[in-house]
Design a protein around this nucleic acid. Structure first.
Lengths: 192, 192
DNA sequence: CAAGCTAGTAATCAACTGATAACATGTCAA
DNA sequence: TTGACATGTTATCAGTTGATTACTAGCTTG
C-alpha cells in the first residue's frame, strides 16, 4: 500500500481510538492495533503522539466547518428566522452519523491543559466556528453563542453515551430527546 | 493530623490535579505531590484511582446541585421570566470562582468510555441537574435544555482557557464575553 | 511497660508508554 | 545485477503508572 493511503487509514483508526479514550487515555499502540500496523510505524509517521492527535483534530475541525459552509451555501440565509437555525442544527446532525468526529473535538477541547499546542488549536477551532457563524449569517453574538452552546450540549451527551442509556433513565432520555430531536436520537441509539 | 482531615486535604488536592489533567492524564503520584503525602497513601485511602476520581466528581456534582437549590430557594420562581434564568445563570457564576469544580465535571463527562463507572456517574449527575431544574422551576424541557447547554459552553470555554487568551483572539474574546458576561470574564482572566 | 491501634512512609513490582535503532522486504532505475 | 529508496517490522529501552507489601513512629489504654 502507498504511504498516503496508509496514512489515511491510520488517521481514520486514530480518530476512532481517540474518540473512545481521549488524548491521554489512548496509547499509540492502541491506534496501531486499530489500524493493523505496528506501533513504531505510527509514531514515525507522525513524529509524536501529540502531532498525530493534532492532525486528527484538525481534520475534525475542518469537516465541521465544511459542513456549516456547504449548508449555509444551500440555505437562504436569514439570521432572524428560527427555521434557518433549525436547518443549520440539522446539518450538525449529519455529523452525528460520524460520532467519532464530535468526540475527537470534545476531547481536544479538554486536552489543552495537558498539551498546550492542542489547547491553542482547540481555541483556534472554536474561534473559527464562531467567526464563520457570525460572518456568514450576520447574526448577533448571542445567537451564535446559543447555537454553539447547543452543539456543546450534544457533544457532552454523546460523550457520556446518554442516547444509548436513555431508556434506563427517564430524565436523561427526555433531555436527550429534546437536545437531539427524536429522529436523531434513534440514529445515535442504533449506532451505540 | 487525623484521617478525616487528611482525607479532605487529599480530596482538595485531587480536585486541583484532576481539573488540570483529567482522569487519564493525572497520575496518583501527581495527586500525592499536590497533597504533600506519599503516593501509596493516596491509593490506600481510596482503593483505586477511579474511586478517588469518583469521590471528587461526586462532590463537584453535589456542590453544583446545592448551589442551584439554594439559589432557587432565594429567588421567586417564575420559569417564564428571563430575569429568573439570568439570576440562576449568575449563581452558576459563583461556581466559577472555583474553576476546578467545573473542570472536574467536564472531565468526568468525557471519562465515561474509558471507565464505565465514571460514565454512569456522569449520566446520573446530568440527569439529576436536569430533573432539579424541571421539578423546581416547572419549566419546559426546552428551557432546561437551553440552560444546561449554556453551562456546557461555559465549561468548554473554561477547559480551553478561552478567557485567559481572550486578548489574543478577538473572536474568541467576543464569544467569551458574551458567554460569561463581562464581569465574570474579568474574574476568570484574573484567576488564569 | 507492653500491646495494639492510627497515621503514615520506603521499597518494590509488573505492566504499560512513547520513542529509537536496527533490520527486512519489495520495487524500480541505471 | 545492483544499488537506492520506500514501506514496513522486530527488538529494545528508559521512564512512568497504579498498586502491594513491609516497615516505622506516635499515641493510647490496660
Amino acid at each position: 500500500m502507498s504511504a498516503p493511503e496508509r496514512r489515511e487509514l491510520v488517521l481514520a483508526a486514530a480518530s476512532r481510538a481517540f474518540a473512545r479514550g481521549g488524548y491521554a487515555g489512548t496509547s499509540t499502540d492502541a491506534v496501531a492495533r486499530e489500524a493493523g500496523v505496528s506501533q513504531p510505524y505510527v509514531v514515525r509517521m507522525f513524529g509524536t503522539k501529540a502531532e498525530l492527535f493534532r492532525e486528527v483534530f484538525a481534520r475534525a475541525s475542518q469537516a465541521i466547518q465544511d459542513t456549516f459552509n456547504s449548508e449555509i451555501d444551500k440555505l437562504v440565509v436569514d439570521a432572524e428566522n428560527e427555521e434557518f437555525w433549525n436547518a443549520l442544527g440539522m446539518a450538525y446532525g449529519e455529523l452525528i452519523a460520524d460520532r467519532d468526529l464530535l468526540l475527537v473535538m470534545m476531547h481536544g477541547f479538554t486536552a489543552g491543559s495537558i498539551e498546550p499546542d492542542i489547547g491553542a488549536q482547540a481555541r483556534t477551532c472554536m474561534s473559527q466556528i464562531y467567526s464563520l457563524l457570525r460572518d456568514r449569517t450576520g447574526c448577533t453574538p448571542e445567537r451564535a453563542r446559543e447555537f454553539i452552546a447547543q452543539g456543546m450540549l450534544l457533544n457532552t451527551l454523546l460523550a457520556m453515551q446518554a442516547p444509548e442509556h436513555a431508556d434506563e433513565d427517564p430524565a436523561l432520555g427526555e433531555l436527550s430527546a429534546c437536545a437531539f430531536g427524536s429522529q436523531l436520537l434513534a440514529e445515535t441509539q442504533a449506532a451505540g
